[in-house]
C-alpha cells in the first residue's frame, strides 16, 4: 500500500459526513447569527439592514427578562431536584443485586426513549384540575389545588424527563468505584455516613456535576413540557422563540433569543470542561 493512499484514506472516509455537517450545522448557525442582527418591520418583514436592537430589547424589556428569569429558575430547581432524587437513586441501584439491578435501571432510564410529548401529556392528565392528583387530594379531604399551567407542573414534569440524565452519569461513576473502597473506609473506623461523605461522594461528584449540566442545559431549552404544561401564559425561552417565529413572525427577535440560549449553553459546557481539566491535572499531576 502506497503512503499517498494511506494519507488520503481517512479524508475519503470522513468527507461525506464532514461536508454534510459543515453545510448543515455551521452554515445554518452562522445564518441564524446574521438573522438576529437584521432589522424587522411589522409591516414589511425582514429588512436588509442591520441592528443591535433585538439584543437590546431582549436585555432591557421586563417581559423578556421575566421569561429568562423564569427559565433560569425552573432549570435550576429542576437540576436541584434531579440531583436530590437521582444521586441517591443511582447509589441504591448500584447496591442492588441482579436481576433487580438491571430491571430497575431499565425502569429508571427506559422512559428516556418515550417521546417527550407522550410524557408531558401523561403529566397533564395527572395534574389537571380533575386529574388523579387532585382526585386523591379531594378523597383525602383537602381541597383541589391548581397544578396544571403552573411552574410547579413544569418543574415536576421536567424532573421526570431529566431524571435519567442525572442517574446515568452518577451510575457510571459508581460503576467505576471499587465496592471494596467503601468497606475499606469502614474497617478503618469510618461510620456509614463518613464513608459516604469522604469516600463515595468525592468519586461521584464529577458524575453529579456533568449530570447537573446536562439537566440544566436541557431544562433551560425544553420546549414540549412548558408548551403543554405551562399553557399560553407561562412562557419559557423555547416557547417564546417558537411564538416569535410561528405567531409573531418576528424571526430576527426569535433568532436573537435562540442565540442567547445557545451561547449560555456553550458557556456552561466550556466552564465544565475547564473544571474537568483542572481536576484531572490535580489528580494526575
Amino acid at each position: 500500500m502506497s503512503r499517498a493512499r494511506s494519507a488520503l484514506t481517512p479524508w475519503l472516509l470522513v468527507s461525506p459526513g464532514a461536508l454534510l455537517f459543515l453545510a448543515l450545522v455551521i452554515v445554518p448557525l452562522v445564518l441564524t447569527v446574521i438573522l438576529s442582527f437584521h432589522v424587522y418591520d411589522h409591516g414589511t418583514g425582514i429588512k436588509n439592514e442591520f441592528t443591535l436592537a433585538h439584543y437590546l430589547a431582549v436585555v432591557t424589556d421586563d417581559y423578556y427578562l421575566g421569561i429568562f428569569w423564569r427559565t433560569l429558575r425552573v432549570a435550576a430547581l429542576t437540576t436541584l431536584l434531579c440531583a436530590l432524587i437521582g444521586v441517591p437513586e443511582a447509589y441504591i441501584l448500584a447496591r442492588m443485586r441482579d436481576p433487580w439491578r438491571s430491571v430497575f435501571l431499565l425502569v429508571i432510564i427506559g422512559p428516556l426513549l418515550v417521546s417527550v410529548v407522550v410524557r408531558a401529556f401523561g403529566w397533564s392528565m395527572l395534574l389537571g384540575s380533575t386529574g388523579l392528583v387532585n382526585q386523591a387530594l379531594q378523597a383525602l379531604g383537602f381541597g383541589t389545588v391548581k397544578l396544571l399551567y403552573t411552574e410547579t407542573a413544569i418543574v415536576i414534569a421536567l424532573v421526570h424527563v431529566m431524571l435519567p440524565f442525572m442517574v446515568i452519569p452518577v451510575w457510571t461513576s459508581l460503576q467505576r468505584l471499587d465496592p471494596a473502597v467503601e468497606a475499606a473506609a469502614w474497617t478503618l473506623g469510618a461510620s456509614r455516613f463518613t464513608a459516604l461523605r469522604r469516600v463515595v461522594m468525592p468519586q461521584v461528584s464529577m458524575g453529579m456535576l456533568s449530570g447537573s449540566l446536562i439537566v440544566f442545559g436541557l431544562s433551560a431549552s425544553a420546549f414540549a413540557i412548558p408548551g403543554l404544561l405551562g399553557g399560553r401564559r407561562l412562557k419559557m425561552a423555547a416557547t417564546l422563540v417558537y411564538d416569535e417565529f410561528m405567531h409573531e413572525l418576528n424571526w430576527p427577535l426569535g433568532a436573537t433569543i435562540a442565540i442567547i440560549v445557545l451561547v449560555a449553553n456553550l458557556v456552561i459546557m466550556l466552564a465544565y470542561n475547564r473544571m474537568v481539566e483542572a481536576r484531572a491535572r490535580r489528580t494526575l499531576g
Partner: peptide
C-alpha cells in the same frame, strides 16, 4: 460488632485505595 469498631487492619485484594 460493626466493621468500623473492630479496629482490624485489612488489605483488600483490589487494595481499595481511595483514588481521590
Amino acid at each position: 460488632e460493626k466493621p468500623n469498631t473492630r479496629g482490624l487492619g485489612i488489605v483488600f485484594q483490589s487494595y481499595a485505595l481511595f483514588p481521590h
